[in-house]
Structure formats: C-alpha cells, structure tokens
Computed example of a mutant assay.
Amino acid sequence: MSKTHTSDLPYDEALPKLQLALVRLQQHAMAAGEKVLVIFEGRDAAGKDGTIHRITEHMSVRATRVVALSKPSDIERTQWYFQRYTPYLPSGGQFVIFNRSWYNRAGVERVMGFSTPEEQEDFLREVPLFEEMLVGAGVRLVKLWLDVSKSEQAERLAERKSEPLKVLKSSPLDEFAQPRWDDYTAARDEMLRRTDTAVAPWTCVKADHKKSARLAVMRHLVRTLAPPEIADDVAPPDPEVLFRFEIAALTDGRLCR
C-alpha cells in the first residue's frame, strides 16, 4: 500500500487510500478475532451518518454492523438500562458501530425529560464501570464526539427539510436542537467531563467541515486500532480537527458553545 502520509491530498484522493487502510484493518481484526466497538455521538446534524457510511463502504457486510436503535419499548423501559445494548456488542472478528448509543441518557433524554434526574445520575456513575468491564473483556472501544457550530447545524437542519433525498434524516427532535442548544451544551459538557476515562477516553471532532472530519475520523480509527504495519502508513489526523478530550476544551473554544 502506498504511503498515506499525504494529509494535504484532495479529499477524493485521500478517501480511497484511507478506506483501503480500513479494509486492511478489518482483515487483521477478523483474523485476530478482535472485538471492535466504535461509538458515534454528537449534536443533531453533526455528520455521523455520512462519516459512518464512508467508513463502512468497502468493509465486510458480514463482519460489520451499524447499530442505530429506535426509542425503547415499554418492556425495554423496565430493563436494566444497558440491557438493550448488550445484544449488539461485538463478538470476535466483528466491527460494530453505534450511531448513537447508551449516551442517549446523558444527552437527548436529559434535555427532553425522557428519563428522571435520578436515572441520569445513575447512568453517569455507572457507565465508566460498564465500559471498563467491556474493555476488560477484550472489546476495543473508541468513543467519538462530533461537534458542530450552532449556525452550521441550523443550515444542515434546513437542508433536511428542503432536499428530498435528505428527508429520511429528519426527526421530530430536530425541532428542539436549536431552541435547546444551551441545554444540549450543558448536557454534553457534563457527559464528557464525567465519562472520559483513561480506559475509555473521548475523542472530539470538529465537524463543521464534513470532509475534513470524515478523513480525520478514518485516520484516527486506523492509527488507534490497526497494527503498526498498517497504522504507520497513515498520517495522524489533523489536531485542529480531531483531539483527545480534556477539561480545558470545554472553555478554550475547541468545543462549540
């Protein structure tokens, strides 16, 4: 494989090189029986769907799953909160992507009142322990927060209404994304602060520019999950686009407010 240490390549040239690196990563993971779990979180219209599509476009259909659960059923509401997610965790050789995850409890459920403050507090206390157990059981866990500015989000939400091919991306909750922007910001800040751990850290992505964000995420996955003979062929992500979460990012302008 030719070197991908060409982060200045145009998007259309960089994308297939990184997709090939992801295919090589998956070949290794399948052969080694690795269990890979990638969590995508972010504000509405942050570009999660498009990024996931580019990642999985050439990956194995049998060994790759994208999980995007609908709202819980009446029965699921009576279960242990994490129970509805555990059937979708990866087995050996599988690459699973959660397009939103158990972190719904710290985000939309908090802002929209879909769970109680006590349930939300229980979640924030328990999720680091749950993720520590996953990692201890051999799951290779990557958590990504895609961040987008208020003005960019407004433009993308408007496009969902006006462009017929994007209509299926719309959700009734889109109507609350802008009016409750500050509430979502507060929820994000507490979630990142309390659930970022050494075992399961958060990686943040500035996603106002979709193509730059996609390439940065793909580079991060290869560099984080692949063995050196694959990872070393891929340039690190742009630190102006993708960075390891730290408390200072909540106030120094790296995360949108």
Rank of each mutant, 00 (worst) to 15 (best):
1 M>E: 05
2 S>E: 15
6 T>L: 15
9 L>K: 09
16 P>S: 03
16 P>A: 07
17 K>A: 15
21 A>D: 00
21 A>E: 00
22 L>D: 00
22 L>T: 00
22 L>W: 01
23 V>M: 00
26 Q>D: 00
29 A>K: 03
29 A>V: 06
34 E>K: 12
34 E>M: 11
37 L>V: 03
42 G>Q: 05
42 G>I: 06
47 G>T: 02
49 D>V: 01
53 H>P: 04
55 I>T: 13
57 E>N: 13
58 H>P: 01
58 H>W: 08
58 H>E: 05
60 S>H: 04
63 A>Q: 09
64 T>Y: 07
65 R>A: 10
72 P>K: 13
77 R>L: 14
77 R>Q: 15
80 W>F: 15
81 Y>Q: 09
81 Y>A: 11
85 Y>Q: 04
87 P>T: 11
90 P>T: 09
91 S>E: 14
91 S>T: 14
93 G>N: 09
94 Q>V: 13
96 V>C: 09
98 F>T: 02
99 N>C: 01
99 N>T: 01
100 R>Y: 01
101 S>M: 08
101 S>D: 06
104 N>W: 01
106 A>T: 09
108 V>C: 01
109 E>A: 06
109 E>Q: 04
110 R>S: 05
117 P>M: 03
122 D>I: 14
122 D>H: 14
126 E>A: 14
129 L>F: 13
130 F>N: 06
134 L>I: 00
137 A>I: 05
140 R>H: 14
140 R>M: 08
141 L>F: 03
141 L>I: 00
141 L>S: 03
141 L>M: 03
142 V>T: 14
144 L>W: 01
146 L>K: 05
150 K>E: 12
157 L>Y: 04
166 K>M: 11
172 P>W: 04
178 Q>K: 07
179 P>G: 09
179 P>D: 06
181 W>M: 06
181 W>V: 00
183 D>G: 09
184 Y>P: 03
192 L>V: 09
199 V>P: 05
201 P>E: 02
202 W>E: 04
208 D>M: 09
209 H>Q: 14
212 S>T: 14
214 R>W: 06
219 R>L: 03
219 R>P: 02
221 L>Y: 01
223 R>P: 05
223 R>E: 05
223 R>G: 12
224 T>H: 08
233 D>R: 13
235 A>K: 02
237 P>S: 07
241 V>C: 06
243 F>I: 07
245 F>K: 11
246 E>H: 13
246 E>G: 11
250 L>K: 06
254 R>W: 11
